[in-house]
């Protein structure tokens, strides 16, 4: 690759990129007497992550922005399950009194509760519910519905996780506590939706585990399990490196990439999450 061309292209898009890179990256300023482009050329491996960090995509700056972002996701999930429970195409599977309907109703109730919690926390700062959510072909069949549900729940888990340190650095311990308690509920939902997909009515997909193995999307959009931005902070779900250690071989024994990747859920930045949502939902 030609780094000079890349830098030059970046400067066209973002004229301040060199300033941002040098401000953010202590190593670059430490090499002040060298030309900045020379310094970058000497560190080809670093350029990708340096650029990603300089334009990090967690663009939410205040606790209220984080909460409104979470609120939008909860509005979306709540509406998704409400539409599913009312969809004629799903009536044969979500029959009254069935375990499947009970589970979807439980999840829908939780999403409603999360909406109410977030609205209460935001007070008059709460953004209104979008006029409508169009989920396209999501409710065409029962397996399709569950595929979408898996995508939304797994994305939800990644989305909350992606904001955790932001909330903490905003010194909002009560909000952090609440977010953690929502986060694990979303993970329970995700596990159950995945478990439902193993069942006969959903196609008996016994390869689908309650946890995320590698970045296998099981029919959901690949981006749900892909890397966020910056990828160093928000790697894809097949990540096997934690805290700089390659866990398959770095823990004194050998573990499979499948087990290592499944042992950790990765976070996602808000821009990537919103892009995923808008790729399958019109709102």
């Amino acid at each position: 690759m030609n780094l000079f061309n890349i830098i030059s292209e970046l400067e066209k898009v973002d004229p301040e990129i060199m300033d941002r890179l040098s401000h953010r990256r202590s190593a670059l300023s430490a090499l002040g007497s060298l030309g900045k482009k020379m310094a970058l050329a000497a560190a080809p491996i670093a350029i990708g992550s340096a650029f990603n960090k300089a334009v990090g995509q967690n663009t939410l700056n205040t606790a209220n922005e984080v909460l409104n972002y979470a609120l939008l996701l909860e509005y979306l999930e709540e509406d998704f399950y409400a539409q599913a429970l009312a969809a004629p195409t799903l009536a044969a599977n979500l029959t009254s009194g069935s375990a499947a309907r009970g589970a979807i109703q439980t999840i829908k109730n939780h999403e409603t509760a999360h909406v109410n919690l977030l609205k209460a926390a935001l007070g008059t700062n709460a953004n209104p519910r979008p006029a409508s959510f169009d989920f396209g072909n999501a409710f065409l069949t029962y397996p399709t519905f569950l595929t979408f549900a898996q995508a939304f729940e797994d994305t939800g888990v990644r989305a909350y996780k992606g904001q955790a340190t932001k909330i903490q650095s905003a010194n909002q311990p009560a909000i952090l506590q609440t977010a953690l308690q929502i986060h694990s509920v979303e993970a329970r939902h995700a596990a159950h939706i995945r478990y439902m997909r193993r069942g006969a009515a959903a196609g008996g997909q016994s390869n689908i585990m309650p946890w995320v193995v590698g970045k296998e999307a099981n029919g959901a959009p690949d981006a749900v399990y892909g890397a966020g931005n910056p990828a160093a902070t928000f790697p894809a779900e097949d990540n096997i490196t934690q805290a700089t250690l390659t866990l398959t071989t770095g823990l004194g024994a050998t573990y499979t990439a499948a087990d290592v990747s499944a042992a950790f859920d990765e976070g996602l930045d808000n821009t990537t999450v919103t892009t995923i949502a808008r790729s399958v939902v019109t709102f």
Binding site: K161, L180, H183, S184, A191, A263, F264, D265, G267
Partner: peptide, 8 residues
């Protein structure tokens, strides 16, 4: 956070 959701 990466661990607790897997535990959940």
């Amino acid at each position: 956070g990466k661990i607790v959701s897997v535990e959940a």
